[in-house]
Design a protein around this nucleic acid. Structure first.
Length: 992
DNA sequence: CCTCTGCTGAGAGGA
């Protein structure tokens, strides 16, 4: 009954499964168990308001407090119930839910937030830099403020907002005197400031005047994950304070959270709640009794002393919030639909500046399309104001995709559930435990700290290299006990048998004695970019209106009739020159793009030179003086085009993290250009506007450049592999667009079965293809020889695919050592007639370009050989066989990863061979995947598999029929040994 | 039955 991915446990960090919920007026009883066998069970009585907790059967809960022989009580005075504790909710989300729960839920589903917060961010930064420097003198503060104003990150923000550096500087300098003042008043000063601390503990007297001195600013931006309370957050400042109570003689030293606020000194319930939540989530670290609010405008310090009631109410809010976030879809009779959210507030003061306004209205109309039964005028007016510009088809497109994204997000969440660091043991994941800091921490650059860890000698070695972690992986650092979870994140640099080095975002040198563990961080990636794009598509504005018309209403694309009006006279010769190298369909594609007023779709069948075509297209547009936004889903696809483009002296700016960019493209990245000297806002503006061509991934559209710059064209490569909401992201920023892809190859990956069946794997490319006037087909290919091409033609393209040249059509594999291998094989056959190797001799012949069996390579360069299999495990065992140095360079990969690439010789292992009539896998049922697999080889394609098994897959059956007709199958020699094994065994005899 | 790539964070403020 309990799904595999759920982890239950008893003890302090317990996790219980809810089996039964019994509701009575005034209380609620849960039957729970912390064992996967669901035996024994315990009970939990919820009352005094806790019975309102939206807990359901099948939820996981954490119990706080104590149980009386298996009976828990959570009421006004004692105990907490933490619903779905492994979903960590941020302190700010919870405090924002005080005013509007709906807004907090929407804030979690959609990205978003207003842009008026730059000032606060920089003031924080200055405070934190001063704290690190331990110097709050006006002089230093002013120097630090200047530094911050020129740092890359804030320049980008200023660019976005269109604020000048001078303006920012003036606002910032208003704060500096009060920062200095605060430090003088509180920071280990000779005359410490008196604060009134209200401690409500029964044994203490009320309202005792207390003296608080900050003795040390112990940490800045401390990251806290608290799986016990289901909370997370970043604590502005962790301070050591000395508390001296008048009534007591004692001096107390405490570590407490300090929350900085740049706004009005409101001491509001939201601000105080944030502090209370910080004290709660750092309970295991410091057990702070109190925290402080520091208002930077005035330099005043407000103590916040939480009571049980405060914590109780905030955790109840958290439970409600987590419930809504996790149940955004209802399942009713096997069909999912969007759930209702908490009601719309329609409070003018609160709603006026709400960043979720449009999503709030959109969601309401998505759940309940006609909204005819909205009783309140205010709500109706609000909905009309926010969504009045949208038609019913617009709203149904939005709600349809919102549902799909929620379904998919839920599946991803469930799959990643077990990957949460605090639930993981060293056995079941990529993890290195029991390591200690060794040597000093060195600062590599701002905010990048190089650490070295060593296996503690007490622990028996199995060697760090086998931990499942490799250099370049993202990691999370925690302590071994699980008290300090998620201390830092970063990347692994080197992994040796005994040592690990890594760069982290925080300096952990103060934890020198602590035993750490490093966990691979797969990263839970939500679908917030999808949803943000969808919400943007519904906005009332020029860019959105245009795209909505094309994408949702499917308005036919328009074209102009005459090239001469778009081609500048001075570019004509250059363009003509560039066109010379192209074949007919490629030229057609160029023309269509130039004539388009809306969009063009380029279908690039396998091997037809998509990359070359895109590269040429960019050169032509560039020559005409058009600006181009060049994107694709993956970094490697973007760089593929840029590597070609680079040779033609076309300048471009590459956006994106240096770590993901191809080394040869690095000089074109923003990062590297900035290092050469970008200090002012106008430097940055120049950088962003300099090049006509800008390249990035579809996800990279959060970059500041897109808040201001617009392009004449946007080109999206791999478009048939990108889901609609992601694909439309870059399209907002260009007047016209070009999608390049091939829907006969792999579609976007969708994990959730229901979402897929509802069409989530339909790309924008495919959706728009119904307008055939926008489509150009590239059907002349140069990759495969005639025989290999015939497979794909019979499987998918009905003969439309053509060879571009006789040379490509007849190209065969060259095997320099063929003669000697053949004679060696003959001699084997002679000495041991039992093992006739004639079949291998036949398959070896270059003149048999397609064989459904296998063979070896007699002198083929390892880098010309690709091995493909549909399953990861198979790849693993093939790789294991190829450990010998002779095979370094042979690339072993999945079908999916081979899309877009080719090799001279491809060995494709179908893997499957079962006698039983069992379940068939999904992978081989996909026509498009098979099509990709068979169109990667240029000269020779070897396929290994069990024909009997494979005939059960319709696509493979069609392929096998064709192979049989063409006499390309060697069926006679079924191998007892695994065919692939034998193949590589022979390879080994005659090393390549 | 097991295929895949994107991207950080949480918060910065105002009612």
């Amino acid at each position: 009954r309990v799904p595999d991915h759920v982890i239950l446990s008893g003890g302090l960090n317990n996790r219980y499964w809810v089996l039964e919920v019994e509701e009575r007026p005034g209380h609620k009883t849960l039957t729970i168990s912390c064992s996967k066998s669901l035996h024994p069970t315990e009970t939990c009585l919820l009352k005094d308001g806790w019975e309102m907790t939206p807990v359901c059967c099948g939820d996981v809960v954490h119990m706080e407090g104590h149980s009386d022989s298996g009976a828990w009580l959570v009421d006004r005075e004692q105990g907490f119930l933490v619903l779905l504790p492994d979903s960590l909710i941020s302190g700010t989300s919870i405090s924002s839910s005080i005013r509007c729960m709906r807004r907090a839920v929407l804030g979690d589903i959609f990205d978003g937030g207003s842009k008026q917060m730059l000032n606060g961010t920089i003031v924080h930064e200055v405070f934190q830099r001063a704290a690190t420097a331990k110097d709050f003198s006006l002089e230093t503060l002013s120097k630090l403020a200047d530094q911050a104003l020129h740092s890359p990150q804030y320049l980008g923000d200023m660019y976005t907002l269109g604020v000048s550096q001078e303006e920012m500087k003036r606002e910032l300098h208003d704060y500096l005197p009060s920062l200095e003042h605060w430090a003088k008043e509180y920071l280990s000063s000779p005359a410490p400031k008196t604060i009134s601390l209200k401690i409500r503990a029964p044994s203490r007297c009320q309202d005792s005047a207390t003296v608080v001195t900050v003795t040390e600013l112990a940490d800045i931006e401390e990251n806290v994950w608290s799986p016990r309370f289901g909370l997370k957050g970043k604590i502005d400042v962790t301070a050591r304070v000395r508390i001296q109570r008048r009534s007591h003689r004692t001096l107390e030293e405490k570590t407490v959270p300090l929350e900085l606020k740049t706004g009005k000194e409101s001491n509001s319930i939201e601000h105080r709640s944030q502090v209370i939540l910080y004290t709660l989530m750092s309970l295991e670290r410091y057990n702070p009794e109190a925290g402080f609010l520091l208002y930077l405008k005035t330099g005043n310090l407000h103590p916040v002393v939480p009571t049980h009631m405060d914590r109780r109410e905030l955790l109840k809010l958290r439970n409600t919030l987590v419930h809504y976030i996790h149940n955004c879809v209802d399942k009713e009779k096997k069909r999912s639909r969007l759930s209702r959210l908490p009601d719309i507030l329609t409070n003018r003061q609160t709603c006026q500046y709400c960043p979720q306004k449009i999503n709030c209205a959109l969601y309401e109309r998505a759940v309940d399309g006609n909204s005819a039964d909205v009783s309140e005028d205010v709500v109706r007016d609000f909905l009309q104001l926010e969504t009045g510009h949208l038609t019913p088809p617009h709203l149904s497109y939005f709600s349809h995709w919102l549902l799909l994204c929620c379904l998919e997000a839920a599946t991803m969440e469930a799959k990643n559930g077990r990957k949460r660091v605090w639930l993981r043991t060293e056995k079941n994941g990529s993890c290195v435990g029991n390591v200690q800091l060794s040597g000093p921490v060195t600062i590599q650059s701002e905010g990048v700290f190089l650490h070295r860890f060593q296996r503690s000698s007490a622990v028996l070695q199995k060697g760090l290299a086998n931990s499942g972690l490799a250099s370049g992986d993202r990691i999370v650092v925690s302590d071994q006990e699980g008290r300090l979870v998620g201390l830092a994140t970063g990347y692994l640099c080197e992994v040796s048998r005994t040592c690990v080095s890594c760069t982290l975002d925080r300096d952990l040198s103060k934890f020198s004695g602590v035993l750490f563990r490093l966990d691979g961080d797969e990263g839970v990636v939500g679908l917030s970019t999808h949803l943000t794009n969808l919400s943007r598509l519904m906005e009332n504005g020029q860019d959105s209106d245009r795209l909505r018309e094309l994408v949702v209403d499917l308005r036919p694309p328009e074209f102009i009739s005459n090239l001469s009006s778009v081609l500048p006279r001075e570019a004509k010769d250059t363009v003509a020159n560039i066109l010379k190298g192209l074949n007919k369909p490629q030229k057609q594609a160029m023309k269509k793009v130039l004539l388009s007023k809306d969009y063009t779709l380029i279908v690039g069948m396998p091997g037809t030179g998509k990359t070359t075509t895109i590269c040429t297209l960019v050169r032509i547009l560039h020559a005409c003086g058009f600006s181009v936004l060049l994107t694709s889903y993956t970094h490697s696809a973007v760089d593929n085009i840029l590597l070609k483009l680079k040779r033609f002296r076309v300048g471009f700016l590459r956006l994106g993290q240096g770590q993901k960019v191809h080394p040869d493209i690095l000089p074109y990245t923003e990062e590297s250009i900035r290092k050469k000297g970008v200090h002012t806002l106008s430097d940055l503006e120049q950088l962003y506007n300099k090049e006509l061509v800008v390249a990035t991934t579809c996800m990279g559209i959060k970059h500041p450049i897109f808040t201001r710059r617009r392009f004449d064209f946007c080109i999206v490569d791999e478009a048939s592999q990108i889901s609609q909401p992601i694909c439309m992201g870059p399209l907002f920023y260009a007047k016209r667009f070009v999608l390049v892809g091939d829907h006969q190859q792999l579609p976007p990956i969708v994990q959730n079965q229901e979402a897929r069946s509802l069409g989530m794997d339909e790309s924008l490319f495919k959706r728009l293809e119904l307008h055939s006037e926008a489509v150009v087909q590239l059907n002349v290919q140069y990759r495969m020889n005639r025989q290999i091409m015939s497979l794909s033609n019979s499987l998918m393209y009905e003969g439309r695919l053509e060879c571009g040249s006789e040379r490509a059509a007849t190209a065969l594999l060259t095997l320099p050592f063929l003669v000697s291998v053949q004679s060696e094989l003959s001699s084997y056959s002679k000495t041991d007639p039992q093992h006739d190797l004639a079949w291998i001799q036949a398959t070896l012949l270059p003149s048999n370009p397609v064989c459904f069996l296998d063979c070896s390579m007699a002198g083929c360069k390892p880098s010309d050989i690709g091995v493909i299999a549909p399953y990861r495990l198979q790849l693993k065992s093939i790789s294991a066989l190829l450990q010998s140095s002779a095979f370094t360079g042979v690339e072993v990969n999945t079908v999916d990863r081979y899309q877009g690439r080719d090799k001279s010789l491809i060995v494709f292992s179908f893997v499957k061979s079962t006698a039983e009539e069992g379940n068939l896998g999904e992978l081989l049922k996909d026509w498009r995947r098979l099509n990709v697999a068979i169109t990667r080889a240029k000269h020779k394609l070897l396929m290994v598999g069990s024909a009997t098994t494979l005939r059960r897959y319709a696509p493979v059956e069609k392929l096998l029929n064709h192979l049989q007709q063409e006499n390309m199958i060697s069926l006679k020699h079924m191998l007892k040994l695994g065919a692939t094994t034998k193949l590589f065994y022979i390879c080994n005899i005659k090393s390549c």
